[in-house]
Structures are given as structure tokens and as C-alpha cells.
């Protein structure tokens, strides 16, 4: 799906828990998800903190979409 969309020249940031699969299928901008049952957030830490985690990750995603990449890049930290 990532490649199908990116073919149209739209940058795609793939937020996925299983980064190795994301790399295998060929996503170019990748942000590791928290876990398969909850990629964006962590409900085991309570709703408030879970949402904070989600906010941080989505901000990182917006930043990744504005960042030029040469090839497959995993954005593991907020600073890049």
C-alpha cells in the first residue's frame, strides 16, 4: 500500500510496529509503532499518557513528511 501511494509522488510515513516488515516491503519513511495491539499510544499507561505518546509520534510523523530522505529511513527519535 505504501508504495502504491508513494508512486503518485505523495510522501508516505509508515507508522508500523514491525519495522523489519516495513523495510522489507519498501517503505521509505518509517516510524516504529509502540506495539501491534496499540501502534499509536500505550493504554497500559493510562489514557492521558497514552495520548501524549500518540501526540509525540504524530508530530514526529509530520516532521518526517517534511524531511528529505535518500532511501529507507527509520525515524526512531524526535530529533532529526
Amino acid at each position: 500500500m505504501v508504495k502504491g501511494i508513494e508512486k503518485y509522488g505523495l510522501p508516505v510515513v509508515h507508522m508500523a510496529t514491525v519495522v523489519p516488515i516495513s523495510l522489507t516491503i519498501g517503505a521509505n519513511r518509517i516510524i516504529p509503532g509502540v506495539g501491534i495491539p496499540y501502534p499509536l499510544g500505550d493504554p497500559t499507561q493510562g489514557e492521558v499518557d497514552s495520548k501524549k505518546i500518540r501526540m509525540r509520534m504524530v508530530k514526529r510523523a509530520l516532521k518526517a513528511l517534511q524531511t528529505p530522505v535518500d532511501g529507507q529511513t527509520v525515524f526512531e527519535k524526535d530529533d532529526f
Binding site: M1, V2, I5, Y8, G9, L10, P11, V12, V13, H14, M15, A16, T17, V18, I21, S22, A27, G33, I36, P37, P39, L40, V58, A61, L62, L65
Partner: peptide, 15 residues
Amino acid sequence: KLKEDGVDGVILVST
């Protein structure tokens, strides 16, 4: 569709 509708970037979430 997204291209036609003028979308500039996509967030794709996988579990």
C-alpha cells in the same frame, strides 16, 4: 484519489 484531491502527505498506520 488522494493525488486528485490535492493531498500532500499520508500517514499510514499498520498494526
